[in-house]
C-alpha cells in the first residue's frame, strides 16, 4: 500500500534532497539555502563584531568571536610558517561555516522537514503517512556536493600556491622526482604522487561527508525504529555527536592548513 508509512520510506524520505533541475543541472535547493543562510549568519555576525571591535574591554559577544579568531589564528601560526594573508581567513571561514552546518544535525530530524512540508501545503495526514512530496535535508554537510565544493576550493588553492611558489617545473618535479629519485622510476613516482595529490581533497570531502552522513543516518534510524526508546537514544547519540561536530570542523580546518602549508614548502 502506497499510503502506509514504512521505515524504509521514512528513511529514504529523510535522505532525499529538495531539488530542481535534471541530470547534472540538478540543484539541491535545501543544501544551497541552508548553507548560504548559515554562511551569512557567520559572516554577518562576525562582521558586526569586526566593525565595532574595540581595543579596550571587549563585550561578551566580541570575546566569544575573538576566542574563535584567536583559536584559529593560533592553529594557523603553529602549522603554517609562510606569510600568506589568505590562510587564516580561509581557515576561519571553513571552521565556523562547517561547524554551523554540522550543528544543524542536532536539530531533531523531523522538525524542519515537517515544518517545510506544512508550509508547502501538505496536510498532516500526508506528512504522517510519509507521502509528502516536499523534501528537506537540513544538514548541508551531509550532502557530498557541499563537502566536495569545500575540498575543491582547497584543492584549487593547493595547486595554485604550489605553482606560484615552486613554479610549474618545481610543482611537476615534486610529482615525478619523489619518492624514488631515479629517471627509471619517474613514471611510477608520477602515478603515486598524482594519486596522493588527488587523495587529499577526496579524503577531505569524504571524511566530513561520511561522518556527518552517518551521524544523521543514525538519528533517522533512531527516530524511525526505536519507538518510545528513541528519547534516551536520541539524547545519548546527540551527546556523542556533540563531540563529532566540532571535531570534524576542526579536522577539516587543520588539514586545509596542513595541505596549504605543504604547497608553500619549497624543497
Amino acid at each position: 500500500m502506497a499510503g502506509e508509512l514504512t521505515t524504509q520510506g521514512y528513511i529514504k524520505h529523510h535522505l532525499t534532497n529538495a531539488s530542481v533541475g535534471e541530470g547534472f543541472w540538478t540543484w539541491h535547493v535545501d543544501t544551497l539555502a541552508w548553507s548560504i543562510l548559515l554562511g551569512l549568519v557567520f559572516i554577518l555576525s562576525f562582521r558586526s563584531v569586526a566593525k565595532k571591535a574595540t581595543v579596550g574591554v571587549p563585550g561578551k559577544f566580541q570575546c566569544f568571536v575573538e576566542m574563535i579568531v584567536e583559536f584559529v589564528g593560533n592553529s594557523v601560526k603553529d602549522t603554517f610558517h609562510g606569510k600568506n594573508p589568505l590562510i587564516a581567513p580561509l581557515a576561519l571561514t571553513i571552521f565556523v561555516w562547517v561547524l554551523l552546518m554540522n550543528f544543524m544535525d542536532i536539530i531533531p530530524v523531523d522538525w524542519l522537514p515537517t515544518a517545510a512540508a506544512l508550509i508547502g501545503g501538505e496536510s498532516w495526514e500526508t506528512i504522517a503517512s510519509g507521502n509528502s512530496h516536499i523534501y528537506m535535508k537540513v544538514v548541508p554537510t551531509t550532502d557530498l556536493n557541499m563537502t566536495a565544493a569545500l575540498a575543491l576550493g582547497v584543492f584549487v588553492l593547493m595547486i595554485f600556491y604550489s605553482i606560484k611558489i615552486k613554479g610549474f617545473g618545481g610543482f611537476m618535479k615534486e610529482l615525478y622526482a619523489h619518492p624514488f629519485n631515479t629517471p627509471w622510476l619517474y613514471w611510477f613516482n608520477f602515478i603515486l604522487e598524482v594519486i596522493a595529490l588527488i587523495a587529499k581533497p577526496m579524503s577531505l570531502a569524504l571524511r566530513l561527508f561520511g561522518n556527518l552522513y552517518a551521524g544523521e543516518l543514525i538519528f533517522i534510524l533512531i527516530a524511525g525504529l526505536m519507538g518510545i526508546w528513541q528519547l534516551p537514544a536520541h539524547f545519548i547519540w546527540a551527546a556523542f555527536h556533540l563531540l563529532v561536530i566540532p571535531l570534524q570542523a576542526f579536522i577539516f580546518m587543520m588539514l586545509t592548513i596542513v595541505y596549504l602549508s605543504l604547497a608553500h614548502e619549497d624543497h
Partner: peptide, 24 residues
Amino acid sequence: LNATLLGESIAFIVFVWFTMKYVW
C-alpha cells in the same frame, strides 16, 4: 555530484573573500 557543487563553490569563494577582506 551535480550543479549544487558549483553553487557551493561560488558561495565558498565569496565567503572566504568576505572574511579575508572585512572580518579577519
